[in-house]
Amino acid sequence: MQRVNMIMAESPGLITICLLGYLLSAECTVFLDHENANKILNRPKRYNSGKLEEFVQGNLERECMEEKCSFEEAREVFENTERTTEFWKQYVDGDQCESNPCLNGGSCKDDINSYECWCPFGFEGKNCELDVTCNIKNGRCEQFCKNSADNKVVCSCTEGYRLAENQKSCEPAVPFPCGRVSVSQTSKLTRAETVFPDVDYVNSTEAETILDNITQSTQSFNDFTRVVGGEDAKPGQFPWQVVLNGKVDAFCGGSIVNEKWIVTAAHCVETGVKITVVAGEHNIEETEHTEQKRNVIRIIPHHNYNAAINKYNHDIALLELDEPLVLNSYVTPICIADKEYTNIFLKFGSGYVSGWGRVFHKGRSALVLQYLRVPLVDRATCLRSTKFTIYNNMFCAGFHEGGRDSCQGDSGGPHVTEVEGTSFLTGIISWGEECAMKGKYGIYTKVSRYVNWIKEKTKLT
C-alpha cells in the first residue's frame, strides 16, 4: 500500500490518463441519441435557420407576430419608411378606419389613436360632414345658397324668414311668412316636400332668348283662358290664391305678392273693366268669414305684352289694390325667389296649380277651390304637342294621358313649387288646347323671366 501511494504521488498524470480511459469505455446513459432527441424537440425550422439574422431580410411573422416588435424591426421587413409607417399605425392600436367614419364618399386613412378623412370636392370637416359648395344638395341650405369668396357655403332665406341657429334652416321672422300653410287642420295635408338634388348652379339658368321682337298675326285659340281631375282644397291650404270678379264672377285667378299687390295673367284683364279681388276665398257660393274683398285701382301688364300681336306672350300683369290686405292664416303671400332659384325650383319637376275653373272641358265651374299636382314636361315634348308657338318664356306641365289639367277660369292662378315646406311661385296658368285632352298640356308663363320686374313694381313704400 505504501508503494502504491508513492507511485500516485510521483505520477499524477498517469492516474488522470487511467481515469479518462475508464470513462470513455463506459456506456453513456444520461444523453439520448440524435434521433430520439429530435422526437422530443420537434420544432419547425425557421426561415433563416442556421444563418445569422443580421444578414437576412426581415420576416413579418418572425419579427412582429411571434413577439412584439419595434418600429426598427418592422422597418427591416418593409425596407421602406412609408410602408412601415402605414403598417405601424394599425399594428400599434388597430384600424381606426374600420367603422368607416368618413361621410359623403370620403376616404379614410388610419393613424395612431386617430384617423384622417380625405374629402371629395365640396366637403370638409373631420368626417367630411361639412358642405362647402352650393353645387351639392344646395349646400344643405333649406332655401338659398351662395358661395363666399373663400368658396364656403353661405345660406340665406327669402323675405319674412331668418336663418336658424344651425345656419342652414329657415324659420319665420314674421307672423305670416310667405308660402307657408298655417291653418292647423290643413298642415297635415301639406304636399310632399321637395329635397334639393345635386345641381350645376353655374349652368342652372337656361341660355334662352326671349323672342321679344317676333311679330306674329293673332292666333285663334280655343278655350285658351284655361282644375280638371283635381281635388277639393281645404280652407287655408292655398292662402296665396285669390279669385278675380268682373263682368262675371271667378273669371280668373291670381296670387298675393304682398298686402297691396296681386300677380295674374295679362290676358285676364281689360282696361276700363272694374275688377274686384277676393282673398281668403274657399267656396265661392258661401260666406265663410275668411274672405277679404278689395278693388283694383291700377293694372300693370308687362311692358312687352301686346294682345294685338299675341294674347299669351309675356302673359303676366300686376294688380294694385285700393287697401292693403290683412295677412292671416287664410290670406298669405306666395314666396318669389330670384331668377336663378325660381328656375331651379321649376326644374324640380312638379308643381301645384289651383283655381275655381271648370271641372271638365266646357263644363261647370268649381264651387270649392280645386288643386292638382302636375309634372313638368320637357321642352321637346311640349313643342311636338301643339302647332302653336311655345315661346321661351312659357313652359308645359300636365299629363300625356289627359284627364287632369287646369281649365277655363283658372287662368292667372299660381303654379307653385314647394321647397322644404315653403311654396314659391314658378308659373302662372296661361293657356292650353281644350282641357285635359290626351297628348295636350297646360301652358304656363315662366315666372323666372319676370321676377325682377315683379319685385321692382310691387315694392311697398
Results as ranks from 00 to 15, higher is better:
residue 318 L to P: 00
residue 145 C to E: 02
residue 202 V to C: 05
residue 22 Y to I: 14
residue 256 I to Y: 00
residue 162 R to K: 08
residue 260 K to R: 13
residue 18 C to A: 11
residue 299 I to H: 06
residue 44 P to D: 14
residue 169 S to A: 11
residue 199 V to C: 06
residue 225 T to N: 14
residue 293 K to G: 04
residue 174 V to T: 11
residue 401 E to K: 15
residue 154 V to C: 05
residue 386 T to H: 10
residue 264 T to E: 01
residue 8 M to K: 14
residue 317 A to V: 03
residue 50 G to E: 12
residue 397 A to K: 02
residue 155 C to Q: 00
residue 8 M to I: 14
residue 17 I to P: 02
residue 216 Q to R: 05
residue 47 Y to G: 15
residue 250 A to K: 07
residue 37 A to I: 11
residue 363 G to R: 06
residue 364 R to C: 04
residue 197 P to K: 14
residue 185 Q to T: 15
residue 60 L to Y: 09
residue 226 R to S: 06
residue 71 F to A: 06
residue 433 E to Y: 06
residue 283 N to S: 08
residue 334 I to G: 00
residue 150 D to S: 12
residue 414 P to W: 03
residue 344 I to K: 15
residue 394 M to S: 06
residue 404 R to N: 06
residue 360 F to Y: 15
residue 449 R to H: 15
residue 232 D to M: 13
residue 248 V to Y: 12
residue 350 S to G: 09
residue 147 N to F: 11
residue 359 V to F: 12
residue 327 L to C: 03
residue 155 C to S: 01
residue 341 Y to M: 13
residue 123 F to E: 00
residue 168 K to D: 03
residue 198 D to R: 11
residue 170 C to K: 02
residue 430 S to L: 13
residue 396 C to L: 02
residue 184 S to T: 06
residue 150 D to Y: 08
residue 59 N to D: 14
residue 404 R to F: 13
residue 407 C to P: 04
residue 454 I to Y: 00
residue 189 L to Y: 11
residue 227 V to I: 12
residue 145 C to W: 02
residue 321 L to P: 00
residue 154 V to K: 13
residue 449 R to Y: 15
residue 296 V to Y: 01
residue 227 V to H: 06
residue 259 E to P: 09
residue 328 N to C: 03
residue 239 P to I: 00
residue 77 V to C: 06
residue 38 N to C: 03
residue 97 C to Y: 00
residue 189 L to T: 07
residue 276 T to I: 10
residue 270 E to F: 08
residue 254 G to I: 00
residue 238 F to M: 10
residue 237 Q to F: 10
residue 154 V to R: 10
residue 351 G to I: 01
residue 65 M to V: 13
residue 16 T to H: 11
residue 131 D to S: 13
residue 90 Q to V: 11
residue 218 T to P: 14
residue 430 S to W: 03
residue 51 K to A: 14
residue 221 F to G: 06
residue 195 V to C: 06
residue 275 I to H: 05
residue 343 N to P: 02
residue 120 P to R: 05
residue 317 A to G: 03
residue 148 S to T: 13
residue 174 V to K: 09
residue 430 S to P: 03
residue 99 S to D: 10
residue 101 P to M: 03
residue 317 A to W: 00
residue 459 K to E: 12
residue 193 E to C: 05
residue 46 R to P: 14
residue 52 L to A: 15
residue 268 C to L: 01
residue 88 W to H: 15
residue 182 S to P: 06
residue 368 V to R: 13
residue 414 P to N: 14
residue 353 V to K: 04
residue 24 L to C: 10
residue 111 D to V: 10
